[in-house]
Design a protein around this nucleic acid. Structure first.
Lengths: 252, 252
DNA sequence: TCGTACTGCGTATGAGCTACGCTGTGATGC
DNA sequence: GCATCACAGCGTAGCTCATACGCAGTACGA
Protein backbone atom coordinates (compact mmCIF):
# COMPACT_ATOMS: atom_id res chain seq x y z
CA UNK A 1 0.00 0.00 0.00
CA UNK A 2 1.73 3.17 -1.13
CA UNK A 3 1.91 6.62 0.24
CA UNK A 4 -0.72 9.30 0.37
CA UNK A 5 -1.66 11.72 -2.34
CA UNK A 6 -3.77 14.84 -2.83
CA UNK A 7 -5.91 14.69 0.29
CA UNK A 8 -3.09 13.92 2.66
CA UNK A 9 -5.09 10.99 3.92
CA UNK A 10 -3.66 7.47 4.08
CA UNK A 11 -4.52 5.24 1.14
CA UNK A 12 -6.91 3.05 3.10
CA UNK A 13 -8.90 6.10 4.20
CA UNK A 14 -9.03 7.38 0.65
CA UNK A 15 -10.39 3.99 -0.34
CA UNK A 16 -13.09 4.39 2.33
CA UNK A 17 -14.04 7.69 0.65
CA UNK A 18 -14.10 6.10 -2.78
CA UNK A 19 -11.26 8.35 -3.89
CA UNK A 20 -8.84 5.60 -4.74
CA UNK A 21 -9.21 2.29 -6.48
CA UNK A 22 -7.82 -0.86 -5.02
CA UNK A 23 -4.65 -2.01 -6.83
CA UNK A 24 -5.20 -4.30 -9.79
CA UNK A 25 -1.69 -5.43 -10.64
CA UNK A 26 0.07 -8.30 -8.93
CA UNK A 27 -1.09 -11.59 -7.49
CA UNK A 28 -4.66 -12.14 -6.42
CA UNK A 29 -5.24 -10.73 -3.01
CA UNK A 30 -5.72 -13.26 -0.25
CA UNK A 31 -6.68 -10.50 2.15
CA UNK A 32 -8.73 -7.34 2.14
CA UNK A 33 -8.96 -4.26 4.33
CA UNK A 34 -12.46 -5.27 5.34
CA UNK A 35 -11.35 -8.67 6.58
CA UNK A 36 -8.48 -7.18 8.55
CA UNK A 37 -10.67 -4.58 10.19
CA UNK A 38 -13.32 -7.16 10.94
CA UNK A 39 -10.78 -9.42 12.63
CA UNK A 40 -9.37 -6.52 14.63
CA UNK A 41 -12.83 -5.45 15.78
CA UNK A 42 -13.53 -9.01 16.82
CA UNK A 43 -10.36 -9.13 18.91
CA UNK A 44 -11.20 -5.80 20.55
CA UNK A 45 -14.74 -6.91 21.29
CA UNK A 46 -13.53 -10.20 22.73
CA UNK A 47 -10.46 -9.24 24.73
CA UNK A 48 -10.38 -5.43 24.73
CA UNK A 49 -8.43 -2.93 22.74
CA UNK A 50 -5.18 -3.89 24.43
CA UNK A 51 -5.35 -7.31 22.84
CA UNK A 52 -5.36 -5.85 19.33
CA UNK A 53 -1.81 -6.55 18.22
CA UNK A 54 -0.83 -6.93 14.60
CA UNK A 55 0.31 -10.47 15.32
CA UNK A 56 -2.97 -11.33 17.01
CA UNK A 57 -5.06 -9.95 14.16
CA UNK A 58 -2.93 -11.83 11.65
CA UNK A 59 -3.36 -14.99 13.66
CA UNK A 60 -7.15 -14.56 13.63
CA UNK A 61 -6.92 -14.43 9.85
CA UNK A 62 -4.42 -17.26 9.49
CA UNK A 63 -1.85 -15.08 7.71
CA UNK A 64 1.57 -13.70 8.44
CA UNK A 65 1.82 -10.57 10.56
CA UNK A 66 3.66 -8.57 7.96
CA UNK A 67 1.03 -9.22 5.33
CA UNK A 68 -1.23 -6.75 7.09
CA UNK A 69 1.09 -3.91 6.21
CA UNK A 70 0.21 -4.35 2.55
CA UNK A 71 -3.22 -3.04 3.41
CA UNK A 72 -2.73 -0.64 6.28
CA UNK A 73 0.28 1.58 6.59
CA UNK A 74 0.55 1.29 10.34
CA UNK A 75 -1.37 0.19 13.38
CA UNK A 76 -2.67 3.72 13.88
CA UNK A 77 -4.32 3.47 10.49
CA UNK A 78 -5.96 0.23 11.53
CA UNK A 79 -7.29 1.99 14.61
CA UNK A 80 -8.93 4.63 12.46
CA UNK A 81 -10.53 1.99 10.28
CA UNK A 82 -11.77 0.13 13.33
CA UNK A 83 -13.47 3.29 14.60
CA UNK A 84 -15.02 3.77 11.20
CA UNK A 85 -16.34 0.21 11.26
CA UNK A 86 -18.12 0.83 14.54
CA UNK A 87 -19.96 3.77 13.04
CA UNK A 88 -21.07 1.64 10.08
CA UNK A 89 -24.26 1.22 12.12
CA UNK A 90 -26.08 4.10 10.55
CA UNK A 91 -27.63 6.94 12.51
CA UNK A 92 -31.37 7.22 13.07
CA UNK A 93 -33.62 9.12 10.70
CA UNK A 94 -34.53 12.21 12.70
CA UNK A 95 -35.78 14.36 9.87
CA UNK A 96 -39.43 14.32 10.94
CA UNK A 97 -38.82 15.13 14.61
CA UNK A 98 -38.63 18.32 16.62
CA UNK A 99 -35.16 19.36 17.63
CA UNK A 100 -35.37 18.02 21.18
CA UNK A 101 -36.87 14.69 20.27
CA UNK A 102 -34.55 14.39 17.30
CA UNK A 103 -31.45 15.16 19.31
CA UNK A 104 -32.52 12.79 22.10
CA UNK A 105 -33.11 10.02 19.57
CA UNK A 106 -29.73 10.69 18.00
CA UNK A 107 -27.97 10.71 21.36
CA UNK A 108 -29.62 7.47 22.45
CA UNK A 109 -28.65 5.73 19.22
CA UNK A 110 -25.10 6.97 19.60
CA UNK A 111 -25.07 5.74 23.19
CA UNK A 112 -26.22 2.30 22.02
CA UNK A 113 -23.53 2.07 19.36
CA UNK A 114 -20.72 3.18 21.65
CA UNK A 115 -21.95 1.12 24.57
CA UNK A 116 -21.80 -1.94 22.33
CA UNK A 117 -18.18 -1.07 21.46
CA UNK A 118 -16.76 0.83 24.43
CA UNK A 119 -13.20 -0.02 23.41
CA UNK A 120 -13.50 2.55 20.63
CA UNK A 121 -13.38 5.27 23.28
CA UNK A 122 -9.98 4.09 24.44
CA UNK A 123 -8.35 4.63 21.08
CA UNK A 124 -4.92 6.22 21.34
CA UNK A 125 -5.60 8.02 18.09
CA UNK A 126 -8.30 10.59 17.67
CA UNK A 127 -9.19 13.77 15.91
CA UNK A 128 -12.09 15.45 14.23
CA UNK A 129 -14.39 13.23 12.19
CA UNK A 130 -12.70 12.53 8.85
CA UNK A 131 -14.25 9.30 7.62
CA UNK A 132 -17.55 8.74 5.81
CA UNK A 133 -19.46 6.90 8.55
CA UNK A 134 -18.53 9.41 11.21
CA UNK A 135 -19.63 12.20 8.91
CA UNK A 136 -22.95 10.42 8.45
CA UNK A 137 -23.55 10.60 12.19
CA UNK A 138 -22.57 14.22 12.18
CA UNK A 139 -25.02 14.86 9.38
CA UNK A 140 -27.82 13.24 11.32
CA UNK A 141 -27.07 15.27 14.44
CA UNK A 142 -27.18 18.50 12.47
CA UNK A 143 -30.42 17.48 10.79
CA UNK A 144 -31.91 16.95 14.24
CA UNK A 145 -31.12 20.57 15.02
CA UNK A 146 -32.57 21.92 11.81
CA UNK A 147 -35.69 23.40 13.42
CA UNK A 148 -33.86 24.82 16.43
CA UNK A 149 -33.20 28.23 14.97
CA UNK A 150 -29.52 27.98 15.88
CA UNK A 151 -26.81 29.16 13.53
CA UNK A 152 -24.42 26.79 11.79
CA UNK A 153 -21.65 27.27 14.35
CA UNK A 154 -24.01 26.80 17.26
CA UNK A 155 -25.50 23.64 15.79
CA UNK A 156 -22.03 22.17 15.50
CA UNK A 157 -21.24 23.20 19.07
CA UNK A 158 -24.46 21.69 20.42
CA UNK A 159 -23.89 18.48 18.54
CA UNK A 160 -20.34 18.24 19.85
CA UNK A 161 -21.56 19.00 23.40
CA UNK A 162 -24.08 16.15 23.24
CA UNK A 163 -21.55 13.84 21.63
CA UNK A 164 -19.04 14.60 24.35
CA UNK A 165 -21.67 13.85 26.96
CA UNK A 166 -22.54 10.50 25.33
CA UNK A 167 -18.91 9.48 25.06
CA UNK A 168 -18.32 10.41 28.67
CA UNK A 169 -21.30 8.41 29.87
CA UNK A 170 -20.27 5.34 27.90
CA UNK A 171 -16.72 5.62 29.18
CA UNK A 172 -17.81 5.70 32.82
CA UNK A 173 -20.43 3.00 32.38
CA UNK A 174 -18.15 0.63 30.55
CA UNK A 175 -15.43 1.08 33.14
CA UNK A 176 -17.81 -0.07 35.84
CA UNK A 177 -18.92 -2.96 33.66
CA UNK A 178 -15.34 -4.01 32.94
CA UNK A 179 -14.16 -3.66 36.51
CA UNK A 180 -16.98 -5.71 37.94
CA UNK A 181 -16.63 -8.40 35.28
CA UNK A 182 -12.93 -8.67 36.03
CA UNK A 183 -13.77 -9.38 39.66
CA UNK A 184 -16.58 -11.75 38.81
CA UNK A 185 -19.16 -9.62 40.62
CA UNK A 186 -22.16 -7.57 39.56
CA UNK A 187 -22.01 -3.82 39.00
CA UNK A 188 -24.17 -3.40 42.06
CA UNK A 189 -21.68 -5.33 44.13
CA UNK A 190 -18.77 -3.39 42.67
CA UNK A 191 -20.45 -0.10 43.47
CA UNK A 192 -21.14 -1.26 46.99
CA UNK A 193 -17.56 -2.39 47.48
CA UNK A 194 -16.37 1.04 46.35
CA UNK A 195 -18.80 2.63 48.79
CA UNK A 196 -17.48 0.52 51.64
CA UNK A 197 -13.88 1.33 50.79
CA UNK A 198 -14.68 5.02 50.63
CA UNK A 199 -16.52 4.91 53.92
CA UNK A 200 -13.30 3.58 55.42
CA UNK A 201 -11.02 6.16 53.84
CA UNK A 202 -13.22 9.22 53.89
CA UNK A 203 -13.67 10.62 57.37
CA UNK A 204 -16.33 13.27 58.11
CA UNK A 205 -13.68 15.54 59.59
CA UNK A 206 -11.68 15.66 56.42
CA UNK A 207 -14.37 15.24 53.75
CA UNK A 208 -17.72 16.15 55.30
CA UNK A 209 -19.68 16.52 52.04
CA UNK A 210 -18.32 13.34 50.48
CA UNK A 211 -18.80 11.41 53.72
CA UNK A 212 -22.41 12.58 53.87
CA UNK A 213 -22.98 11.38 50.33
CA UNK A 214 -21.57 7.95 51.05
CA UNK A 215 -23.42 7.78 54.34
CA UNK A 216 -26.57 8.45 52.37
CA UNK A 217 -25.74 5.36 50.37
CA UNK A 218 -25.20 6.98 46.97
CA UNK A 219 -22.77 4.29 45.89
CA UNK A 220 -25.26 1.59 46.78
CA UNK A 221 -27.97 3.01 44.60
CA UNK A 222 -26.62 1.84 41.31
CA UNK A 223 -29.23 2.78 38.76
CA UNK A 224 -27.63 1.22 35.69
CA UNK A 225 -26.19 2.78 32.55
CA UNK A 226 -29.40 3.62 30.72
CA UNK A 227 -31.05 5.39 33.65
CA UNK A 228 -27.92 7.36 34.41
CA UNK A 229 -27.58 8.28 30.77
CA UNK A 230 -31.20 9.39 30.43
CA UNK A 231 -30.95 11.53 33.54
CA UNK A 232 -27.85 13.29 32.25
CA UNK A 233 -29.30 13.66 28.77
CA UNK A 234 -32.29 15.51 30.19
CA UNK A 235 -29.96 17.95 31.91
CA UNK A 236 -27.98 18.60 28.77
CA UNK A 237 -31.11 18.95 26.65
CA UNK A 238 -32.53 21.38 29.21
CA UNK A 239 -29.42 23.47 28.78
CA UNK A 240 -29.77 23.41 25.02
CA UNK A 241 -33.46 24.24 25.37
CA UNK A 242 -32.54 27.42 27.23
CA UNK A 243 -30.29 28.39 24.34
CA UNK A 244 -32.96 27.63 21.76
CA UNK A 245 -35.53 29.64 23.75
CA UNK A 246 -33.08 32.51 23.79
CA UNK A 247 -32.84 32.36 20.01
CA UNK A 248 -36.59 32.55 19.62
CA UNK A 249 -36.93 35.66 21.76
CA UNK A 250 -37.69 39.02 20.13
CA UNK A 251 -34.64 40.78 18.85
CA UNK A 252 -32.84 42.68 21.59
CA UNK B 1 7.32 -2.84 48.26
CA UNK B 2 5.14 -5.73 49.38
CA UNK B 3 1.61 -6.72 48.67
CA UNK B 4 -1.62 -5.08 49.68
CA UNK B 5 -3.47 -5.49 52.93
CA UNK B 6 -6.82 -4.60 54.51
CA UNK B 7 -8.04 -1.99 52.06
CA UNK B 8 -7.15 -3.94 48.93
CA UNK B 9 -5.24 -0.92 47.72
CA UNK B 10 -1.63 -1.10 46.58
CA UNK B 11 0.95 -0.13 49.18
CA UNK B 12 1.85 3.14 47.51
CA UNK B 13 -1.80 4.23 47.53
CA UNK B 14 -2.13 3.29 51.17
CA UNK B 15 0.90 5.46 51.82
CA UNK B 16 -0.87 8.34 50.03
CA UNK B 17 -3.74 7.86 52.46
CA UNK B 18 -1.43 7.78 55.43
CA UNK B 19 -2.49 4.24 56.22
CA UNK B 20 0.91 2.68 55.91
CA UNK B 21 4.33 3.75 57.07
CA UNK B 22 7.28 3.72 54.78
CA UNK B 23 9.67 0.83 55.50
CA UNK B 24 12.35 1.54 58.07
CA UNK B 25 14.64 -1.43 57.77
CA UNK B 26 17.31 -1.85 55.13
CA UNK B 27 19.76 0.51 53.49
CA UNK B 28 19.02 4.19 53.22
CA UNK B 29 16.70 4.84 50.36
CA UNK B 30 18.17 6.61 47.40
CA UNK B 31 14.75 7.06 45.88
CA UNK B 32 11.26 7.95 46.97
CA UNK B 33 7.81 7.60 45.54
CA UNK B 34 7.56 11.35 45.25
CA UNK B 35 10.71 11.62 43.18
CA UNK B 36 9.61 8.85 40.87
CA UNK B 37 6.19 10.36 40.33
CA UNK B 38 7.70 13.78 39.78
CA UNK B 39 10.05 12.43 37.13
CA UNK B 40 7.23 10.57 35.43
CA UNK B 41 5.02 13.66 35.39
CA UNK B 42 7.90 15.63 33.92
CA UNK B 43 8.34 13.09 31.13
CA UNK B 44 4.61 13.13 30.40
CA UNK B 45 4.52 16.90 30.35
CA UNK B 46 7.54 17.09 28.09
CA UNK B 47 6.97 14.28 25.61
CA UNK B 48 3.46 13.01 26.28
CA UNK B 49 2.14 10.04 28.13
CA UNK B 50 3.50 7.65 25.52
CA UNK B 51 7.03 8.58 26.47
CA UNK B 52 6.53 7.46 30.06
CA UNK B 53 8.42 4.18 30.09
CA UNK B 54 9.93 2.75 33.23
CA UNK B 55 13.36 2.95 31.63
CA UNK B 56 12.85 6.58 30.67
CA UNK B 57 11.70 7.56 34.16
CA UNK B 58 14.65 5.73 35.68
CA UNK B 59 16.99 7.49 33.31
CA UNK B 60 15.57 10.88 34.33
CA UNK B 61 16.44 9.94 37.90
CA UNK B 62 19.84 8.45 37.11
CA UNK B 63 18.95 5.06 38.58
CA UNK B 64 18.42 1.57 37.27
CA UNK B 65 15.06 0.72 35.77
CA UNK B 66 14.34 -2.12 38.14
CA UNK B 67 14.88 0.10 41.21
CA UNK B 68 11.54 1.72 40.53
CA UNK B 69 9.77 -1.52 41.31
CA UNK B 70 10.82 -1.24 44.91
CA UNK B 71 8.48 1.70 45.19
CA UNK B 72 5.65 1.00 42.77
CA UNK B 73 4.33 -2.44 42.12
CA UNK B 74 3.73 -1.92 38.43
CA UNK B 75 3.48 0.77 35.83
CA UNK B 76 -0.29 0.94 36.32
CA UNK B 77 0.34 1.94 39.91
CA UNK B 78 2.65 4.68 38.75
CA UNK B 79 -0.12 5.92 36.48
CA UNK B 80 -2.49 6.22 39.41
CA UNK B 81 0.09 8.15 41.39
CA UNK B 82 0.73 10.47 38.47
CA UNK B 83 -2.98 11.27 38.26
CA UNK B 84 -3.02 11.94 41.96
CA UNK B 85 -0.07 14.29 41.59
CA UNK B 86 -1.93 16.36 39.02
CA UNK B 87 -4.77 16.88 41.46
CA UNK B 88 -2.37 18.04 44.15
CA UNK B 89 -3.31 21.50 42.93
CA UNK B 90 -6.09 22.01 45.38
CA UNK B 91 -9.65 22.93 44.43
CA UNK B 92 -11.03 26.43 44.86
CA UNK B 93 -12.81 27.48 48.03
CA UNK B 94 -16.42 27.73 46.91
CA UNK B 95 -18.06 27.72 50.30
CA UNK B 96 -19.28 31.32 50.15
CA UNK B 97 -20.77 31.18 46.66
CA UNK B 98 -24.17 30.36 45.28
CA UNK B 99 -24.47 26.99 43.66
CA UNK B 100 -24.16 28.25 40.08
CA UNK B 101 -21.21 30.52 40.70
CA UNK B 102 -19.60 27.92 42.89
CA UNK B 103 -19.99 25.16 40.37
CA UNK B 104 -18.75 27.40 37.55
CA UNK B 105 -15.70 28.35 39.60
CA UNK B 106 -15.05 24.73 40.39
CA UNK B 107 -15.43 23.69 36.75
CA UNK B 108 -13.11 26.43 35.54
CA UNK B 109 -10.44 25.49 38.05
CA UNK B 110 -10.74 21.86 37.04
CA UNK B 111 -10.47 22.89 33.39
CA UNK B 112 -7.28 24.84 34.17
CA UNK B 113 -5.70 21.90 36.00
CA UNK B 114 -6.55 19.37 33.32
CA UNK B 115 -5.68 21.70 30.47
CA UNK B 116 -2.24 22.09 32.02
CA UNK B 117 -1.88 18.29 32.11
CA UNK B 118 -4.00 16.92 29.26
CA UNK B 119 -2.02 13.69 29.21
CA UNK B 120 -3.80 12.65 32.38
CA UNK B 121 -6.95 12.17 30.33
CA UNK B 122 -5.23 9.57 28.19
CA UNK B 123 -4.48 7.26 31.08
CA UNK B 124 -5.09 3.61 30.26
CA UNK B 125 -6.16 3.09 33.86
CA UNK B 126 -9.15 4.73 35.40
CA UNK B 127 -11.93 4.22 37.85
CA UNK B 128 -13.86 6.07 40.48
CA UNK B 129 -11.90 8.54 42.58
CA UNK B 130 -9.96 6.59 45.21
CA UNK B 131 -7.06 8.82 46.18
CA UNK B 132 -6.97 11.75 48.60
CA UNK B 133 -6.44 14.60 46.14
CA UNK B 134 -9.19 13.42 43.84
CA UNK B 135 -11.51 13.16 46.81
CA UNK B 136 -10.63 16.72 47.76
CA UNK B 137 -11.88 17.92 44.38
CA UNK B 138 -14.99 15.86 44.78
CA UNK B 139 -15.54 17.42 48.19
CA UNK B 140 -15.26 20.91 46.73
CA UNK B 141 -17.72 20.13 43.93
CA UNK B 142 -20.28 18.87 46.42
CA UNK B 143 -19.78 21.91 48.64
CA UNK B 144 -20.53 24.10 45.63
CA UNK B 145 -23.89 22.35 45.36
CA UNK B 146 -24.75 22.72 49.04
CA UNK B 147 -27.35 25.41 48.53
CA UNK B 148 -28.93 23.84 45.46
CA UNK B 149 -31.56 21.88 47.30
CA UNK B 150 -30.57 18.70 45.50
CA UNK B 151 -30.37 15.37 47.25
CA UNK B 152 -27.10 13.57 47.89
CA UNK B 153 -27.45 11.32 44.87
CA UNK B 154 -28.34 14.19 42.59
CA UNK B 155 -25.45 16.30 43.79
CA UNK B 156 -23.07 13.49 42.93
CA UNK B 157 -24.71 13.07 39.54
CA UNK B 158 -24.49 16.78 38.77
CA UNK B 159 -20.88 16.93 39.85
CA UNK B 160 -20.05 13.94 37.67
CA UNK B 161 -21.94 15.49 34.74
CA UNK B 162 -19.92 18.69 34.98
CA UNK B 163 -16.71 16.78 35.48
CA UNK B 164 -17.42 14.69 32.39
CA UNK B 165 -18.04 17.85 30.43
CA UNK B 166 -14.77 19.41 31.58
CA UNK B 167 -12.78 16.31 30.76
CA UNK B 168 -14.39 16.11 27.34
CA UNK B 169 -13.61 19.74 26.58
CA UNK B 170 -10.00 19.39 27.64
CA UNK B 171 -9.63 16.24 25.60
CA UNK B 172 -10.88 17.88 22.43
CA UNK B 173 -8.96 21.09 22.99
CA UNK B 174 -5.69 19.38 23.74
CA UNK B 175 -6.01 17.17 20.69
CA UNK B 176 -6.26 20.25 18.52
CA UNK B 177 -3.32 21.80 20.33
CA UNK B 178 -1.22 18.68 19.95
CA UNK B 179 -2.10 18.09 16.32
CA UNK B 180 -1.30 21.66 15.29
CA UNK B 181 1.96 21.69 17.25
CA UNK B 182 3.00 18.45 15.57
CA UNK B 183 2.55 20.12 12.20
CA UNK B 184 4.21 23.34 13.27
CA UNK B 185 1.10 25.41 12.55
CA UNK B 186 -1.36 27.36 14.68
CA UNK B 187 -4.66 25.92 15.86
CA UNK B 188 -6.40 28.37 13.57
CA UNK B 189 -4.44 27.02 10.62
CA UNK B 190 -5.11 23.44 11.65
CA UNK B 191 -8.83 24.11 11.90
CA UNK B 192 -8.81 25.77 8.49
CA UNK B 193 -6.91 22.87 6.96
CA UNK B 194 -9.51 20.48 8.34
CA UNK B 195 -12.25 22.66 6.92
CA UNK B 196 -10.64 22.62 3.49
CA UNK B 197 -10.22 18.86 3.57
CA UNK B 198 -13.84 18.41 4.60
CA UNK B 199 -15.04 20.77 1.90
CA UNK B 200 -13.33 18.47 -0.58
CA UNK B 201 -14.71 15.23 0.83
CA UNK B 202 -18.16 16.33 1.88
CA UNK B 203 -20.45 16.94 -1.07
CA UNK B 204 -23.81 18.70 -0.64
CA UNK B 205 -25.57 15.78 -2.30
CA UNK B 206 -24.34 13.31 0.26
CA UNK B 207 -24.04 15.45 3.40
CA UNK B 208 -26.18 18.57 2.91
CA UNK B 209 -26.23 19.72 6.55
CA UNK B 210 -22.51 19.16 7.13
CA UNK B 211 -21.66 20.79 3.81
CA UNK B 212 -23.76 23.81 4.77
CA UNK B 213 -21.91 24.08 8.07
CA UNK B 214 -18.51 23.98 6.43
CA UNK B 215 -19.68 26.34 3.69
CA UNK B 216 -20.65 28.74 6.49
CA UNK B 217 -17.05 28.56 7.62
CA UNK B 218 -17.57 26.95 11.04
CA UNK B 219 -14.15 25.34 10.95
CA UNK B 220 -12.50 28.68 10.24
CA UNK B 221 -14.03 30.35 13.26
CA UNK B 222 -11.75 28.85 15.84
CA UNK B 223 -12.67 30.52 19.07
CA UNK B 224 -10.05 28.96 21.32
CA UNK B 225 -10.32 26.57 24.23
CA UNK B 226 -11.53 28.94 26.92
CA UNK B 227 -14.32 30.46 24.86
CA UNK B 228 -15.50 27.06 23.71
CA UNK B 229 -15.39 25.79 27.26
CA UNK B 230 -17.30 28.74 28.67
CA UNK B 231 -20.01 28.40 26.04
CA UNK B 232 -20.49 24.72 26.81
CA UNK B 233 -20.36 25.33 30.56
CA UNK B 234 -23.23 27.79 30.29
CA UNK B 235 -25.32 25.18 28.51
CA UNK B 236 -24.60 22.55 31.14
CA UNK B 237 -25.24 24.98 33.99
CA UNK B 238 -28.51 26.01 32.36
CA UNK B 239 -29.52 22.38 32.37
CA UNK B 240 -28.63 22.04 36.04
CA UNK B 241 -30.48 25.26 36.76
CA UNK B 242 -33.66 23.75 35.32
CA UNK B 243 -33.23 20.82 37.69
CA UNK B 244 -32.61 23.08 40.68
CA UNK B 245 -35.65 25.21 39.79
CA UNK B 246 -37.67 22.03 39.66
CA UNK B 247 -36.53 21.17 43.18
CA UNK B 248 -37.64 24.54 44.51
CA UNK B 249 -41.14 24.28 43.13
CA UNK B 250 -44.05 23.62 45.42
CA UNK B 251 -44.57 19.98 46.20
CA UNK B 252 -46.48 18.22 43.45
C1' DT C 1 25.37 -10.83 67.11
C1' DC C 2 22.20 -12.90 64.14
C1' DG C 3 18.23 -13.04 61.30
C1' DT C 4 15.62 -10.79 58.22
C1' DA C 5 13.52 -6.99 55.80
C1' DC C 6 14.93 -3.98 52.50
C1' DT C 7 17.64 -1.41 48.48
C1' DG C 8 19.69 -1.26 44.02
C1' DC C 9 19.95 -3.31 39.87
C1' DG C 10 21.91 -6.84 36.30
C1' DT C 11 20.20 -10.44 33.48
C1' DA C 12 16.90 -12.62 30.94
C1' DT C 13 12.50 -13.37 28.75
C1' DG C 14 8.47 -12.59 26.19
C1' DA C 15 5.69 -9.41 23.68
C1' DG C 16 4.98 -5.90 20.33
C1' DC C 17 5.82 -2.81 16.08
C1' DT C 18 7.79 -2.36 11.86
C1' DA C 19 11.90 -1.71 8.33
C1' DC C 20 13.90 -4.33 4.87
C1' DG C 21 14.21 -7.40 1.28
C1' DC C 22 13.36 -11.92 -1.21
C1' DT C 23 10.36 -14.65 -4.19
C1' DG C 24 6.61 -15.21 -6.93
C1' DT C 25 2.25 -13.28 -9.37
C1' DG C 26 -0.15 -10.80 -12.74
C1' DA C 27 -1.28 -6.54 -15.49
C1' DT C 28 0.29 -3.46 -19.00
C1' DG C 29 2.81 -1.71 -22.86
C1' DC C 30 5.68 -2.48 -26.77
C1' DG D 1 4.96 -13.06 -26.72
C1' DC D 2 8.10 -10.86 -23.78
C1' DA D 3 9.96 -7.42 -20.64
C1' DT D 4 8.99 -4.42 -17.09
C1' DC D 5 7.15 -3.20 -12.97
C1' DA D 6 3.63 -2.86 -9.44
C1' DC D 7 2.03 -5.73 -6.06
C1' DA D 8 1.17 -9.80 -2.45
C1' DG D 9 2.89 -12.66 1.17
C1' DC D 10 5.93 -12.97 4.69
C1' DG D 11 10.69 -14.30 6.90
C1' DT D 12 14.27 -12.02 9.34
C1' DA D 13 16.06 -8.73 12.19
C1' DG D 14 16.29 -4.91 15.25
C1' DC D 15 14.59 -2.04 18.65
C1' DT D 16 11.67 -0.87 22.61
C1' DC D 17 9.15 -2.08 26.59
C1' DA D 18 7.48 -4.30 31.10
C1' DT D 19 8.75 -7.12 34.51
C1' DA D 20 10.22 -11.87 36.85
C1' DC D 21 14.09 -13.52 39.19
C1' DG D 22 17.95 -13.45 41.99
C1' DC D 23 22.56 -11.63 43.73
C1' DA D 24 25.13 -8.67 46.90
C1' DG D 25 25.14 -5.43 50.28
C1' DT D 26 22.80 -2.43 54.06
C1' DA D 27 20.58 -1.56 58.30
C1' DC D 28 17.13 -2.40 61.92
C1' DG D 29 15.07 -5.16 65.64
C1' DA D 30 15.14 -8.92 68.89
Amino acid sequence: MDTTSGTGLPASIEIAWGLREKPTKGPKRGLSIDRIVEAAVHVAATDGLGAVAMGRVASELGVGTMSLYRYVGAKDELYILMSEAVFATGPPDVSGLGWREGLATWARSLFDVLFAHPWVLRMPVSGPPATPNQLRWMESGLIALRGSGLGEGEKISVMLLVMGFVRSEVTVSSELTTASAAQGITEQEAAQAYGRLMTTLVTPERFPAVAAAFAAGVASEEDGPEIRFSWGLERVLDGVAALVADRHEPDS
